[in-house]
Amino acid sequence: MCNQIVGLIQAAIERVGITTVSITLLKEVTEKIAPPRAMFVPYKLGYPLGKPNDPELQKRIIKEALSLLHRNDLPIMTEFKDV
């Protein structure tokens, strides 16, 4: 449900003129809600930034998500590849 609620909050924020990007853990849900910019990450529920106490991985995820902010071919959902 969290992934749906994130999309709904995101839409409300984008609507007032603020650029938004979200992480999603459930592609199946986010495809249906279709928020402006989302990045799917291949982790289990509860782990949107990958791993606890892994600053390097967390930062890679954040940076890749932020790279979507200038895009306006919406809605978009990209996939983060954990190498």
Binding site: V6, V16, T19, V21, L25, P48
Partner: peptide, 13 residues
């Protein structure tokens, strides 16, 4: 908006 925020970054669990 009233805080003049430009970007919101959102995360689920």
């Amino acid at each position: 908006k009233s805080d003049n925020v430009d970007v919101a970054f959102l995360t689920p669990v």
